[in-house]
Deep mutational scan, measured.
Amino acid sequence: SKTSNTIRVFLPNKQRTVVNVRNGMSLHDCLMKALKVRG
């Protein structure tokens, strides 16, 4: 089974995003990807 960790990230202006960290990806990469999608 694939394991994925879901991390809630609290952003300024009362924004919130959820990042799924996959195996083999660093938290930083996942964060940058999530913020790019939002931006």
Score class of each variant (00 low, 15 high):
residue 5 N to T: 13
residue 1 S to C: 15
residue 31 L to M: 07
residue 20 N to Y: 09
residue 18 V to D: 00
residue 19 V to L: 13
residue 20 N to E: 09
residue 5 N to D: 08
residue 36 K to D: 06
residue 7 I to S: 01
residue 9 V to T: 06
residue 1 S to I: 13
residue 33 K to M: 06
residue 9 V to L: 03
residue 1 S to P: 15
residue 10 F to V: 02
residue 17 T to F: 06
residue 18 V to A: 05
residue 28 H to D: 10
residue 24 G to C: 13
residue 37 V to M: 09
residue 39 G to R: 04
residue 30 C to I: 13
residue 35 L to R: 00
residue 23 N to H: 11
residue 14 K to S: 06
residue 18 V to E: 04
residue 19 V to F: 11
residue 4 S to I: 10
residue 32 M to R: 10
residue 31 L to P: 00
residue 29 D to H: 13
residue 2 K to T: 09
residue 18 V to I: 10
residue 18 V to G: 01
residue 5 N to Y: 08
residue 34 A to G: 10
residue 23 N to T: 12
residue 19 V to A: 10
residue 10 F to H: 09
residue 39 G to E: 03
residue 21 V to F: 06
residue 1 S to A: 06
residue 24 G to V: 10
residue 22 R to P: 13
residue 4 S to V: 06
residue 27 L to M: 07
residue 35 L to M: 13
residue 5 N to K: 12
residue 33 K to N: 02
residue 1 S to L: 12
residue 36 K to N: 14
residue 31 L to Q: 00
residue 31 L to V: 07
residue 10 F to I: 02
residue 13 N to K: 07
residue 13 N to H: 08
residue 23 N to K: 12
residue 10 F to S: 08
residue 6 T to V: 14
residue 39 G to S: 13
residue 19 V to T: 13
residue 21 V to G: 09
residue 9 V to K: 06
residue 26 S to G: 07
residue 29 D to V: 09
residue 20 N to H: 11
residue 28 H to S: 14
residue 26 S to C: 11
residue 25 M to I: 14
residue 25 M to R: 13
residue 6 T to M: 13
residue 8 R to C: 04
residue 30 C to G: 07
residue 28 H to P: 01
residue 16 R to G: 03
residue 7 I to F: 08
residue 21 V to E: 00
residue 17 T to I: 01
residue 24 G to S: 15
residue 14 K to N: 12
residue 6 T to A: 07
residue 35 L to A: 06
residue 32 M to K: 11
residue 10 F to L: 04
residue 7 I to L: 12
residue 14 K to I: 04
residue 10 F to P: 06
residue 27 L to P: 00
residue 33 K to Q: 03
residue 3 T to I: 14
residue 3 T to S: 09
residue 39 G to A: 07
residue 2 K to G: 14
residue 4 S to N: 12
residue 22 R to N: 14
residue 35 L to Q: 00
residue 13 N to I: 04
residue 12 P to R: 02
residue 37 V to L: 12
residue 38 R to L: 03
residue 13 N to Y: 12
residue 32 M to L: 12
residue 12 P to Q: 02
residue 22 R to C: 08
residue 12 P to L: 01
residue 16 R to H: 15
residue 15 Q to P: 01
residue 27 L to R: 01
residue 22 R to F: 05
residue 24 G to R: 13
residue 14 K to T: 07
residue 6 T to R: 10
residue 8 R to L: 07
residue 12 P to S: 00
residue 38 R to Q: 06
residue 1 S to N: 14
residue 1 S to G: 11
residue 30 C to Y: 03
residue 5 N to I: 05
residue 17 T to A: 03
residue 7 I to N: 01
residue 22 R to G: 08
residue 18 V to F: 02
residue 5 N to H: 10
residue 14 K to W: 06
residue 28 H to Y: 11
residue 38 R to Y: 06
residue 8 R to P: 02
residue 37 V to W: 07
residue 24 G to A: 14
residue 21 V to I: 07
residue 14 K to M: 10
residue 28 H to N: 11
residue 32 M to S: 09
residue 7 I to V: 08
residue 37 V to E: 01
residue 7 I to T: 02
residue 30 C to W: 02
residue 16 R to L: 04
residue 38 R to H: 01
residue 15 Q to R: 01
residue 22 R to H: 10
residue 35 L to V: 04
residue 28 H to L: 12
residue 20 N to S: 09
residue 13 N to D: 08
residue 28 H to Q: 14
residue 21 V to S: 06
